[in-house]
């Protein structure tokens, strides 16, 4: 399943990354190299194989629905690139 330039652009947008126009061709070739390599997996028939999602087969633990680590707004906002009025600040996005 070779991919084309349009797919590179689409995947870049889905990833919220920019691939400069002059890099699209090279990116496509590199991806196709990797995907061709990955396609060796098709040598093995896996029709009746259960996918493995977690190695340790155990049910997820339930916990009480209560706050475990709260009241640290100030600490959290210290790492924000921009914060105002005790909130994360973003550029204006609504006209």
């Amino acid at each position: 399943m070779a991919i084309d330039n349009e797919t590179v652009k689409r995947v870049a947008f889905l990833s919220r990354l920019r691939v400069e126009n002059d890099k699209i061709e090279a990116t496509k070739e590199e991806f196709n190299k990797i995907l061709t390599w990955i396609e060796e997996l098709n040598e093995i028939n896996t029709d009746n194989v259960e996918p493995l999602i977690a190695v340790n087969d155990m049910p997820l633990r339930m916990r009480k629905d209560e706050v475990t680590a709260g009241h640290c707004r100030e600490d959290i906002l210290k790492n924000a690139p921009a914060a105002e009025y005790d909130y994360f600040a973003v550029p204006k996005v609504v006209e």
């Binding site: 990955i38 098709n42 896996t46």
Partner: peptide, 15 residues
């Protein structure tokens, strides 16, 4: 299905 699910199935075989 072609890539991710396939790989999860292969992971089972390797396990």
């Amino acid at each position: 299905d072609a890539y991710y699910l396939k790989a999860q199935k292969m992971r089972r075989l390797i396990y």
